[in-house]
Design a binder for these strands. Structure first.
Length: 843
RNA sequence: GCGGGUGUGGCGGAAUGGUAGACGCCGGGGACUUAAAAUCCCCUGACCUUUGGUCGUGCGGGUUCGAGUCCCGCCACCCGCACCA
């Protein structure tokens, strides 16, 4: 027996803080890059410091934490850092609404959130903490930006923004609601500004090919990125116009060229601009198209509108003249900004042609004899054979496309071309709270980079947010400087960088943080690539693609020798909660879980008892008030119960519905484990073969499940072994199983595990203990249950020794009374035997 | 609109094409208790003519000895769409 019997109840209020302090003082989770151990870099997407840790963060970081702690137990030197994606719009919004400084607001938020993370007991190396809003971080980012500029990967061009004509400011897409500014309510316009771009398109092919090697990324994310990059092989060709000009168009479907019934150009296409010059109706139409937001979703769901320019375009094969329209659904950014429209086989063209009464010829059909089949109210974009298409008739579409390209090239009026959907990355933001773009505008010398020895370009602190627009632009002194070239008066660039730039290299800075450079390549090479990256699916495209691009770009300029930053990616689901609401005065009013008394079938307000409606289970959000506060639940249940809840039940890639009953169950389980840990007896004698087998199976299964990030399954295994150990008689095996349970639970419930480890007199911290070994020979059972089916339906089960012969299993099956009754004398035609699993009798 | 995903008991979910519902929550019954809390034990997909049987994995088809799993067509919900992070 141990000398120190455990207290009857586990007290997280005491234990959590005690062990958090013990880890801190021992520097347990400080990563040593000089360690001889194999290295493992576990990273969760760093948070935006909004002020409070959200339960979704808790889930994300708990998953990474379990993996980090498990890897340590497996003998790895683990890097598990944390930092803050600290630039961005919410700080400026807070400044405008509450009159606080974005910097002060952000730094206070960071302090509060860091304290919250510490209370959950995460195994983080805080010595490497980063906040992107500090010059010690963004100054290096400016240096990297200049490196990319020197390599020709940065340029300026005009690009459209959402312009609020009342607030005289640029709006983010999320600030445009139904085409209007969120504060002013004014009709938003699309306006062109000079902006900075990164040449991500130069790496399009590489980024696409690289996906094929990212075997440990989810297929869905790779597919999304592939579609986003959007490589297409098509035909670029020129229409001869009735006005003597030529109009280049690009199409991915040259096989449908005989189905073109009109030509359409983007509203900002040169032809449209020219039309506007001498036709004020055309000019008005183009103005109309410029209203509303810039998002793809808005552009594509807007009603299809067009303006006939009166120009004709000569079809290269038929010689017929097709009308040229200006159309709001054609994008200047893609291909040549002009299309041949084939209404029969493209839905957008179909809607446009229907609206303007243009012909909708069929040029693809399932078979040649269906050449005159009518359309069922929509376009048919699919596969088939060409019809009504002259020399293409009867060819399959892919062969026809190749044929058209060959003829265009032979005739000299077009050529096969690869076009990418991916566009260059616009990084200019007309905002204060971001990394200043390190350039200077000089009347004589043009746009000049800030000399390296003048970095960092530091944001001024004395700014005001009383008037809309960019505070850097109207700051009295900040932008005025000397030109590094001629020494004359010049102005700083007042745009700041997209915050996606900040998050495109923070994982490098975590691995290595010299003062004089962004990172040390040798130090980075010790840790990178990140072995396991964990974050939300909402980042599947932009953040992950930009980080991949940035890493490749750094490799391209010789700063790194690897191209992919994240070897393995995992995307976790959201934490959700049902909503509670009442209709009051015709409006739906939401109530928070604390305000509601939830019974099994109904719910009512605690104050007053009025019934509330239990709504759908949705993502937690402030507007729906269905949020729970991590501090509150840790206070009530302890960090380990909260961590256990985050891991239980729902598979990590799916949504996790928060429930009060669920967390209560988790808290009960911590006490149940605690009682079991109190029954550890170092002097117990005797062997328990059945329990031993279960223990070895559990150790192997939990390890496998954690490595696969199937935490919910690991949790189920721990429940099973707990139940088995509770029911077993005292024996040496039982004590061994109890000790094993402490170790299996250690990554998930580290405070409880430490407390039990210590109380039972084990040496050191359990965080430093090795993962328990298992005997592979004990993983399989000698007796197996065989299912006996008749015509695929279960009739009986029998037990048989593992590895029993087919003949023996057949005999067992046919001997079954239940099976014989089911067959009822019918002739057995066939018997299918799956060894160690089942026998299926076919009659 | 386009791209991607998800759908299994009252609930979260488990299941290399091979016994559907492991494990947990909720609920029901019981033990202990003066009582409660805590704890422990048992039951818990639906239906029927209940020592047995039928149905059942969003809906409709298909492949197979056998389909939650594979194929085709739908439906609903969720994520992303380039200035939210």
């Amino acid at each position: 027996m141990t000398d120190t019997p455990l207290d009857a109840r586990f007290d997280p209020g005491q234990a959590d803080a005690r062990w958090q302090r013990a880890w801190d003082e021992a520097g347990t989770f400080v990563a040593d890059s000089d360690s001889p151990k194999p290295k493992s870099y576990v990273l969760e997407m760093f948070p935006y410091p909004s002020g409070r840790i959200h339960i979704g963060h808790v889930r994300n970081y708990t998953m990474g934490d379990v993996l980090a702690r498990y890897k340590r137990m497996q003998g790895f030197e683990v890097l598990h850092p944390m930092g803050w994606d600290a630039f961005g719009m919410p700080a400026e919004n807070a400044a405008m609404e509450k009159g606080v400084h974005p910097g002060g607001w952000t730094r206070a938020n960071i302090e509060a959130m860091k304290a919250q993370l510490k209370r959950i007991g995460f195994a983080l190396d805080w010595s490497r903490e980063i906040a992107t809003c500090e010059p010690e971080y963004y100054g290096h980012e400016q240096a990297l930006f200049l490196d990319l500029y020197d390599a020709g990967l940065v340029y300026r061009r005009q690009s459209e923004v959402n312009w609020d004509p009342v607030d005289m400011t640029v709006l983010a897409n999320e600030q445009v609601i139904d085409g209007r500014g969120w504060r002013s309510g004014a009709q938003v316009e699309r306006r062109k500004l000079d902006q900075w771009f990164l040449k991500i398109t130069q790496f399009a092919e590489e980024l696409l090919d690289g996906l094929g090697k990212l075997d440990d990324w989810p297929d869905k994310v790779r597919l999304m990125q592939e579609n986003w990059i959007g490589k297409s092989q098509g035909l670029e060709f020129r229409f001869a116009l009735s006005n003597g000009d030529q109009l280049p168009v690009y199409t991915t479907r040259p096989d449908t060229i005989f189905g073109a019934s009109f030509v359409a150009v983007a509203p900002d296409h040169p032809i449209a601009q020219a039309a506007a010059m001498n036709n004020c109706d055309a000019a008005k139409f183009i103005e109309l198209c410029k209203r509303g937001g810039t998002t793809a979703a808005e552009l594509e769901t807007a009603e299809k509108l067009g303006f006939d320019t009166g120009i004709g375009a000569k079809h290269p094969f038929t010689g017929e003249y097709l009308p040229v329209f200006i159309a709001n659904f054609v994008l200047m950014d893609y291909g040549t900004g002009a299309i041949m429209a084939v209404p029969g086989h493209d839905q957008r063209d179909y809607e446009f042609a229907s609206k303007y009464g243009l012909p909708i010829p069929r040029v693809v059909a399932r078979s040649i004899d269906l050449a005159d089949a009518p359309f069922a109210g929509e376009a048919e974009p699919g596969d088939g054979v060409c019809v009504n298409s002259g020399f293409l008739d009867g060819m399959r579409v892919d062969a026809a496309a190749a044929e058209v390209i060959a003829r265009a090239e032979a005739g000299g009026w077009g050529e096969g071309k690869t076009v990418w959907r991916l566009r260059d990355w616009g990084v200019s933001r007309q905002r204060y709270w971001g990394t200043p773009i390190p350039f200077i505008h000089c009347a004589k010398c043009g746009v000049v980079p800030v000399p390296r020895d003048q970095l960092p370009v530091i944001l001024p602190d004395d700014v005001d947010f009383k008037t809309p627009g960019n505070p850097l632009l109207r700051h009295p002194t900040w932008k005025h400087t000397q030109c590094p070239g001629c020494g004359g008066k010049a102005e700083r660039e007042t745009d700041t960088l997209d915050t996606f730039v900040d998050s495109s290299w923070y994982f490098l800075r975590f691995a290595s943080q010299p003062a004089d450079r962004p990172f040390d390549p040798e130090e980075v090479a010790k840790w990178l690539p990140v072995e396991q990256y964990i974050g939300g699916i909402e980042h599947a495209i932009l953040h992950l693609l930009y980080a991949r691009f940035w890493t490749r770009a750094l490799k391209h300029i010789g700063k790194l020798d690897f191209a992919e930053p994240f070897a393995s990616l995992f995307t976790q689901g959201m934490v959700t909660h049902e909503t509670y609401s009442r209709r009051e005065d015709g409006r739906e009013i939401f109530y928070s879980p604390e305000e509601v008394d939830r019974r099994s079938e109904s719910a009512a307000l605690k104050a007053g008892g009025l019934p509330v409606e239990i709504g759908r289970v949705v993502k937690m959000s402030k507007s729906k008030k269905n949020v729970v506060d991590p501090d509150d639940i840790i206070e009530r249940f302890g960090a380990d119960a909260v961590r256990w809840f985050m891991l239980s039940d729902s598979p990590p890639e799916r949504d996790l519905p928060w429930s009060e009953a669920g967390i209560e169950g988790c808290a009960r389980f911590t006490q149940r484990l605690w009682r079991l840990f109190g029954q550890y007896d170092a002097d117990a004698q005797g062997e328990d073969k059945a329990l031993s087998r279960k223990m070895h199976q559990a150790i192997a299964a939990v390890a496998e499940d954690i490595e696969a990030l199937s935490f919910n399954k690991a949790v189920a295994r721990i429940y099973e072994l707990t139940t088995a150990a509770e029911k077993a008689q005292s024996s040496a095996t039982r004590s061994e199983a109890i000790a094993a349970l402490m170790l299996l639970a250690a990554p998930m419930m580290p405070h409880l595990a430490e407390e039990a480890w210590h109380a039972n007199g084990f040496y050191g911290l359990i965080a430093d203990a090795p993962w328990p070994p298992h005997d592979p020979a004990l993983l399989v059972e000698d007796q197996v249950t065989i299912a006996i089916q008749h015509m695929g339906k279960l009739r009986d089960t029998v037990t048989a020794p593992r590895g029993a012969s087919q003949a023996d299993l057949e005999a067992l099956a046919l001997a079954s009374e239940k099976v014989r009754r089911s067959i009822e004398g019918a002739a057995v035609r066939k018997i299918i035997v799956v060894p160690d699993r089942l026998v299926n009798i076919v009659t």
